[in-house]
Computed example of a mutant assay.
Amino acid sequence: MKRCDACRIRTERRVSESRPRDTGDRDPLIDSPIVSQEEPYDNRNLSCGICSMFPSCMSLLSRRPEQAAPRPGQAAVVLNVYDMYWTNWYTAGAGVGVFHSGVQVHGAEWAYGGHPYAFTGVFEIAPRDERELGDQFRFRQSVHIGYTDFSEEEVRRLVAELGKQFRGDRYHLMNNNCNHFTSAFCQALCSRDIPAWVNRLAYVSSCVPFLQRCLPKEWLTPAALQHSLAAHSRSSSPQTPTTPQ
């Protein structure tokens, strides 16, 4: 994928400054027990894709921070990871996990789900509130991704722009799932990617092509997104005219 000059220069600078170190990109299903605290995560080996995917975001992307340490006014970007239903507790030993993730920034958590309509599938919940997602989800852990200069208003503008790509009717387990959204969102916010193990759902679905048709609706459309769809349906439906007395 062709990169813009800014992305090319940033990548060259990072290569020259980088040193071998442990990035912390470990699968908690295999290497560590379940934790609930935020864990640092750093991945500097990023490929550019934001410029071509979301060209109208470029005025905002130019404000992304380059430093690893926070500056005054920056907001933390945290990835919240959830187990989907109870299967992970039984399949962890085999290294197979199915996860949902959301990005927490400025006191809100943003995630993506599927539905049959041609508008955004991105929705907002209270951070780490598994009850808003539904009974099939269990909070697993938080991963600290980085910091962003984006204001709360700019974050919402970016979410609206991402919603054009991550529409409900474009949800796909292999190519466009909730973890693809959080990856794109984190890269746009702070030039950092999510840990690779989080998107194992894409790998599992590639091995079992008919998996999406077998999953319950609640996995593809979490409860919070279903509530958003219900509200959208009520607001878009024509009002019944009042009969004159």
Rank of each mutant, 00 (worst) to 15 (best):
C178P: 13
I125Q: 03
A76N: 10
R131Y: 04
A223Q: 12
F54A: 04
T243E: 13
Q136W: 04
I34M: 06
P20N: 07
C186G: 09
R19T: 15
N199M: 06
Q136D: 06
E39N: 03
C190P: 06
H227Q: 09
S52P: 10
T11R: 01
P20Q: 05
R71P: 01
L61M: 04
R44H: 02
R21D: 08
F181T: 08
Q239H: 11
H232Y: 13
N199Y: 04
F119E: 14
E130M: 00
G95I: 10
Q212I: 15
E12I: 01
P238T: 03
T87H: 02
A188V: 09
P55K: 07
R21S: 15
F139R: 04
V15H: 03
S18L: 04
Q187R: 09
V143L: 05
D31R: 03
M1A: 03
A92T: 10
I125P: 03
A118T: 14
S32I: 05
W89N: 07
E154S: 05
Q37R: 09
D5M: 01
E154Q: 12
T120R: 07
M58T: 12
D27N: 14
F181H: 10
R14I: 04
D25Q: 11
H115F: 14
V198S: 08
A118V: 13
N43K: 13
G95V: 02
L189Y: 06
P55H: 10
Y203W: 13
P28G: 01
S191R: 12
